[in-house]
Design a protein around this nucleic acid. Sequence first.
DNA 1: TGTTCATACATTGCAGCGTTATGTATACTA
DNA 2: TAGTATACATAACGCTGCAATGTATGAACA
Lengths: 126, 126
Amino acid sequence: MSINKDLVAASSTPMVLAILAEGDSYGYAILQRVRELSGGALEWTDGMLYPVLHRLEKAGFVQSRWEKAETGRRRKYYRVTEAGREQLADERRQWRTVDDTLRKVWSALSETAQGDAGPVPLPRWS
Amino acid sequence: MSINKDLVAASSTPMVLAILAEGDSYGYAILQRVRELSGGALEWTDGMLYPVLHRLEKAGFVQSRWEKAETGRRRKYYRVTEAGREQLADERRQWRTVDDTLRKVWSALSETAQGDAGPVPLPRWS
DNA sequence: TGTTCATACATTGCAGCGTTATGTATACTA
DNA sequence: TAGTATACATAACGCTGCAATGTATGAACA
């Protein structure tokens, strides 16, 4: 399933901060972690992730350091800051507010698109 | 609580389509319905909603018609199309995919930002 | 009558950000 | 030696919320 860009944009910050809250990590591993967490449903591109990490660092939500992995490759590790943890908590609150609202309006609707939509419901305003 | 723009962008299409799936409605009433559904937590601006409605109509997800309300004012009513119902179902699937993933990564974290974060957890990679 | 507020729709300029494409470099493996 | 996975980075493009602004009508109130 392909996820539209707005939804990717809305979830990227809380997702990355939460992954880093599990422990320090780096770009490539974060991409894999997202795939793993979603069971393969989410496939982020690196061209999208790196600007996110740079933005988070500029905002003070994460700190980075270069390290040499045992494999020999250089990696840029990120660690979430205290401000980042607060931001994460705020993002979670926002997400839940929107999610609760969507669930409320969705709850009355049938699960799927209806090939036979049946009679159009009477407008509330009539 | 203020909701960041990415989250508003991600939720606007499924929210509007779902509200219209409840019954035909118009711009001003949709703004009120969003406020009502969210218990006042979500406050959409009209400058954001009208372009959304125009975009949905251009995409064929809704159809519009002018009507004269009993109050005498003109209103532009919108009705969701069959394509719109299918789009709504798809948006719901996408939302749930992302929501499930976020819940999974959030579940291990404490509820709030920690003023005293305690010891930094050992990195998974060490 | 005049003023204000709520209703009702619409557009413009700005800025942020994902997408796609591209670039650079290293380590491992066939 | 060539291909693949790893690893980070940037540029051009297009979309879209946001804030500001504009137009217009009806109701309430002084």
